[in-house]
Amino acid sequence: MASSSSLSERIDSVKNVKQITRAMEMVAAARLRRAEQRIEALRPYADALRRMTRRAVEGAQSLPDIPLLEEHDSIDRVGLLLVTGDRGLAGAFNSQIIRAGERRARELRREGQEPAWYVIGAKGAASLGFRGYDLDGVYSGFTDRPAYANAREVGQDIVSAYTDENIDRAEMFYNGYISPMSQVVRHETLLPLQQAEFLGTDGEEGDESEEGGEGTGGQGSEEGPDHSRALWIYEPEPGEILRQLAPDYVEISIYRAMLESTASEHGARMTAMRSASENADEMIDDLTMQANRERQAQITQEIMEVVSGAEATTG
């Protein structure tokens, strides 16, 4: 019968699809693990930078003018940095970032402000370009495995735009990584830098990190802060060091967002591919059942023919 051979062809092709989705799931899982390790690798650097900032704050007699900490008097243009991926096939991963960015842009326009688009990832760039928006910055080709240099490039553009007053604020949207199964759209303010975050004026761990962390825990603490301040050498003076540290915070925030986004993308793709494989399994079961039924019907038919033939001759 024609239909049973076409059924088995369909079963074969669904099996092929399943092999591909299964392979893509494995690849995504391996890349996800690597992305998670890179998030871990950033932590010691970010913590150490924070401790150095505290040290420079200690050393500064008064806080210097740091343009990145200052709010602009009037807000006309707001930089929106969207972190998307270079590829699709990852569920709502890209579209939910683009939607969140567009929603924010509508809000800004209602308040008489103009969005300035900065987009990481070819998918985001393509869909915003398709809508006819002018993009101030497009960065792609690395979202599978972002390097710090990529974040630095983006950060430098946004910091320059803010300092040169081409934009008056900067906000960022990205897929925050919670677990392979769940990502959440995060919306953060990049600029102006929050004073509490940069200078650590919330002061929770301020005293502990005084001695530079990984050293010989605790022994130096008998020296009072005044004493230790007198001994420190700063090169250049602490205010200048703080001014240089500020853009590093922006770069680190962007880098961390890129890494989380990458982990989220691989997680989302892994999940999407797993459910595609499961769908394929279901389809294979259904088709196999159907094929069995048809085969059974055919056998029954043949038996009937034999029986009735036999009856006809004996009768």
Binding site: A48, L49, G212, G213, G215
Partner: peptide, 16 residues
């Protein structure tokens, strides 16, 4: 980057 020396140990933080 940055260099911090404290309690006879050095920490070098560099972007690359």
């Amino acid at each position: 980057g940055y260099l911090q020396v404290v309690e006879n140990s050095a920490l070098v933080l560099v972007e690359e």
